[in-house]
Design a protein around this nucleic acid. Sequence first.
DNA 1: TAGCGACTTTGACTTGAATCAAGCATGAGA
DNA 2: TCTCATGCTTGATTCAAGTCAAAGTCGCTA
Lengths: 241, 241
Amino acid sequence: MDAQLKILDIHEVPLVCRGCDARHNGVCSTLTPHQLTELNKHSQRKAVEAGTELIGQGQQVHSYSNILKGVVKLSKIMADGRQQIVGLQFAPDFMGRPFHGESLMAAEAATDTELCVLPRKILERMISESSELGSRLHNQALTELDEARDWMLTLGRKSAREKVASLLVLVAAHADPDRLGDCAFELPLSRADIADFLGLTIETVSRQMTKLRKDGLIHIENNRQVYVPDLDKLAVTAGGD
Amino acid sequence: MDAQLKILDIHEVPLVCRGCDARHNGVCSTLTPHQLTELNKHSQRKAVEAGTELIGQGQQVHSYSNILKGVVKLSKIMADGRQQIVGLQFAPDFMGRPFHGESLMAAEAATDTELCVLPRKILERMISESSELGSRLHNQALTELDEARDWMLTLGRKSAREKVASLLVLVAAHADPDRLGDCAFELPLSRADIADFLGLTIETVSRQMTKLRKDGLIHIENNRQVYVPDLDKLAVTAGGD
DNA sequence: TAGCGACTTTGACTTGAATCAAGCATGAGA
DNA sequence: TCTCATGCTTGATTCAAGTCAAAGTCGCTA
């Protein structure tokens, strides 16, 4: 938790990106200069290392964040300890939910992560002032809903092999959105995290990774570095579509 | 598809309920009289029987609907026919999604259903005029996101017995939200639908229902009529919490 | 009221993923 | 350089859920 704090120029970061249709070059905000000044005054840059808990399940949420760098995992935990990762937030996503004060899940940094923390009250006032900002957040919520439902199909109906392939395709898409054909990236998740995301055990994940490797669909180095020679082929073994 | 159409008084129906905090007595709308008149002129009442397809996967969506009566299932289908139900909409839910034109899943009436169909363009104009309406829809999206993520935990980490119990608890909650202790309701889903919602096969669903019955947790009549003597006990076997 | 069809249950068997249990790397610290 | 911890892989075995097959139930229509 060695948080290094400093005032951030809000111009440098996108505010709500996942829900926007267009690609942005690091700027997504449509705030007024006055609003920007205010956010600059009150928002804080925060760097945390992998494994840091950002929000505990059932905890009250007093702030929203832009993820500047890294990957955050959202997970639900049952009373007996069983865990399911229910979403991944990649930079430059916005994290948090207006109107919903209490968190129904935990948020934890999957990798070393940098955040821009925005105070809840100020942001909510800006939402009520700007319908553009509100509709962007609405849009992001709908996008996340689509993604959650896609993942429900993966969890409910796919085999272990298809699940692992689906995860690799998902990460590849975020690492290099426009890349066709081959693609290389670093896995932001441990085997244990992958298992919790796919509803599998560590052992099964490991076995399926090995099989995909032996089938020539992926190459792995140092457990985390993945190279996919043919992304289409991998997508097909992920269940097509 | 024997749709019977007639002009509906929009005052009679709630517009967006799931996302609202308060309970409403059948009226949820905050539209102006002028907006109500316009909706009255353009919205249509539609009655369909169980099994009717409302929106096909990949189809363009030109209207939104309020569900007046019945249950609608939302599902994703893979190329090889595997299916996953990714959400249930109970009356008086609003169905549809602003800004997202194309449907990424199919919607089908699970029971005999009555809808109030609102033209897309008119509703979207009203959303842009009324921030209250927009924020209610935003709220509903967030609620659905929470529900989808809860279900991801069910799909990924629960046993067949827990899954079936979870479904029964879910339906019970919608049938009779305030009921404590015991509770009776009619299942809006066939065994096949339940299997598709839980990521199981029909046979497994049937076996688990039988076990729950033999364990005294539920009573079943005519396959669809369910009586739960102790809802808390059922919730515990659904995985607690 | 017999017969058909759709839906559900039940049984026997198979299988994919979980569990249990060693081993293998890699990196940090002594 | 050795040890220890952590994370990953691999193998043997078990078990929960899937598959295949048959029979039961109900409502509908002729």
